[in-house]
Design a protein around this nucleic acid. Structure first.
Lengths: 242, 242
DNA sequence: ATACAATCCAGGGTTTCTCCTGAATATAAA
DNA sequence: TTTATATTCAGGAGAAACCCTGGATTGTAT
């Protein structure tokens, strides 16, 4: 029974380690020893080796993201308590995490802007079998549950494509659809994002396509590093065709 | 003669404070005492009060950004050594900083991913009247100097507008131009960003408008918080018209 | 079985964006 | 003064994006 801390920034690792070991209210409760890793693949590796009870994972890491690392760890060791540490309250991550964590899984989600007390609180909660979710994320989760505003996989796919700058035609080819189907997806996407079209206000204010990307980024539905991943995937599948 | 540390994250402030006070190679050289602030307006306030020799400024802060704070501080106290601390190597910030810092000003720019040694090095350099720029930023600066790839103010303005999702028509109205002029700006923008148009490749791959936003964000020419500032400004000027 | 939502698709019409050529201005460098 | 460069504009053509209505197909919940 040990604890695992995985973050690519050494500064954050030592901060967290100090916090956990010196906190009075965690004395004796924190599984020892504490192992450390620097990226997602190390996280999986160290977890399979030491079977930790508690794992802290940064989301944004090289090689393997914290989310994917969590997925693999939970698949192998479902009883592990996973606490995600993130700089952002991005909806993408909440979306992804929701799919990865088993329904009865125990996990925490804390932003790096959290106070030391909150981090300790999260650790204690997860150790005693509860979940701990950062207050700032509560409303994000609400939104992902809400039918009227949350995006379907189809809409999300379309969103990513336009954010990468693809044309309707290119999207259709990539997803094996007609252009009409693509436009249909986009139409419902714009509606859910609340972007007014030509019809609604007399003079057109917005280019819906770009506006959709802007508000989605602001809401954290997409972010640059996610898009870059997609871009890389696109490149690959393009190479396959050749 | 004192030192000023301004960052909205307490964690980073204490980290930096510890680093500066405990570093052997800075003993005796660091101006004492050390004052701390949490945002840009406090930075200006504390600087006018204590006339520090050295100021550490985080770029992303509430109320007043680190860049704007630096501008005001350097206007009042041109001999202050300013060191910018940033999480990102975004081109926007380099652009802005270049305008704000006087030609003979002394400043540093270090990324938060820097090692402790680098931060100390930067501090020593600035204290002895030199500039210190993070290696990762060198090539960004190169790009901002290069005529062929750097954007003119006109192009940059257009870029921000399309990133916010405005139509040609809306942009023209906002900037007091014809739509044709806007399109002309966009055309040269696309060219500088190296985005292929309909003519260049047989089948159109990209929606240039969205693609431009994507690559610009990736290059750090624009970023979300900057765009949000612009969005707020747009709202204001819209209210003025009423 | 019925209802519902999500999806794909079609046709046809309107607007916006992009492309091309070309011209007039202004400003700064040679 | 000439030469470049940046910039604003025009007209007209074609492509892409958006609007509306509506049908067919799935799957899922009641």
């Amino acid at each position: 029974m040990s604890t695992l801390i995985v973050d690519d920034e050494e500064r954050d690792r030592t901060w967290l380690k100090n916090l956990l070991t010196t906190s009075p209210s965690l004395q004796g409760e924190l599984p020892q020893p504490i192992h450390e890793g620097q990226d997602g693949s190390q996280a999986v590796e160290l977890a399979t080796k030491h079977h930790p009870k508690l794992v802290f994972l940064d989301i944004k890491m090289p090689n393997l993201s914290g989310i994917k690392a969590a997925e693999q760890i939970l698949k192998l060791l479902p009883d592990t308590g996973v606490i995600m540490l993130s700089n952002f309250s991005d909806e993408v991550y909440v979306r992804q995490l929701w799919k990865v964590v088993p329904p009865n899984g125990v996990f925490g989600y804390v932003l790096k802007s959290a106070s030391d007390e909150q981090v300790v609180e999260a650790a204690k909660a997860v150790l005693s079998g509860d979940c701990w979710i950062h207050p700032g994320i509560a409303r994000v989760i609400q939104r992902t549950q809400n039918r009227a505003t949350s995006l379907t996989p189809a809409e999300y796919e379309a969103l990513v494509c336009i954010a990468l700058g693809m044309t309707d035609h290119a999207i259709a080819k990539k997803l094996y659809l007609t252009e009409k189907a693509v436009q249909s997806r986009l139409k419902s996407l714009y509606a859910k994002l609340g972007i007014p079209g030509r019809s609604e206000s007399h003079d057109t204010e917005f280019n819906q396509r770009c506006r959709a990307v802007y508000v989605s980024t602001r809401r954290g539905l997409i972010n640059q590093s996610e898009l870059d991943d997609w871009e890389a995937k696109m490149q690959e599948s393009k190479a396959d065709v050749k």
